[in-house]
Amino acid sequence: MNIKELSQVLNAKILSNGHLSVEIKTTYVSDLMSDVLTFGREAELLVTSLTNRQTIRTVEMVEIPAICYTNGKQPDEKTIELAKSKKITVLATEFSTFQVTGKLFAAGLQG
């Protein structure tokens, strides 16, 4: 699934355009950055309801190219700026983490 399809499935706004050619196959769901930071974590998308700068830093370190914020939460401007400077795709959706996960699971993504 590419970013455009992802944003349609999740009815999500794209707040930062990273590498648009990214193909999302595997998703990781967590609000705990230390959990995401486990070595060997391979995913193309992080789904989280945490919206601070640490989320961007975390996906930068583990090289997850896209992040989707849930529960209608919006990151602040600085966080979006940081994401843009790191070429990380940022989406935001009104759906809850559970709903986002359900929709992506139904669409055939892996976890």
């Binding site: 998703t27 990781y28 769901v29 967590s30 789904v47 759906f95 809850s96 983490t97 559970f98 709903q99 996960t101 359900g102 929709k103 992506l104 699971f105 139904a106 993504l109 892996q110 976890g111």
Partner: peptide
């Protein structure tokens, strides 16, 4: 033993709303 993604995904498939 599964991830949050899989557990939530499977529940969603069972028709549990979110």
């Amino acid at each position: 033993s599964k991830s949050a993604f899989e557990v939530a995904g499977e529940l969603y498939q069972l028709g549990i709303p979110g």
